[in-house]
Amino acid sequence: MSAVMGRYKPGDAVRVDDRAVAGHCRAPWYLRGQEGVVVEVLGNFRDPERLAYLRPGLPRQILYKVRFEQASIWPNYIGASSDALEADITENWLHASDTAKRGAQAL
């Protein structure tokens, strides 16, 4: 599956877009605007935002497994500083992070 070449590669710092959406969308609200690190390129999938309306789901979207630090998502997170959350986010919801501070540290 990792043969797919996308805009991002494992180790890249990314930020989830924070746009509002009217229709079906799979980028969860709690991750919008959050910064994380790509841990895996999962493949090339039909676009859920189009499939939802029974369209062919094209163009396909590259899907990334993105790791977020729990403490950076939730201000009052209780747990270890290494605790992480991973979610699968399509390329059209990601931006290159300008603050690449997290880098590949979590990897």
């Binding site: 924070d18 959406v21 709690y30 991750l31 919008r32 605007g33 939730w74």
Partner: peptide, 13 residues
């Protein structure tokens, strides 16, 4: 702030 609207099914957190 921002993050767009939260839909009914989107319950994380």
């Amino acid at each position: 702030e921002n993050a767009g609207g939260r839909a009914v099914h989107d319950v994380g957190g």
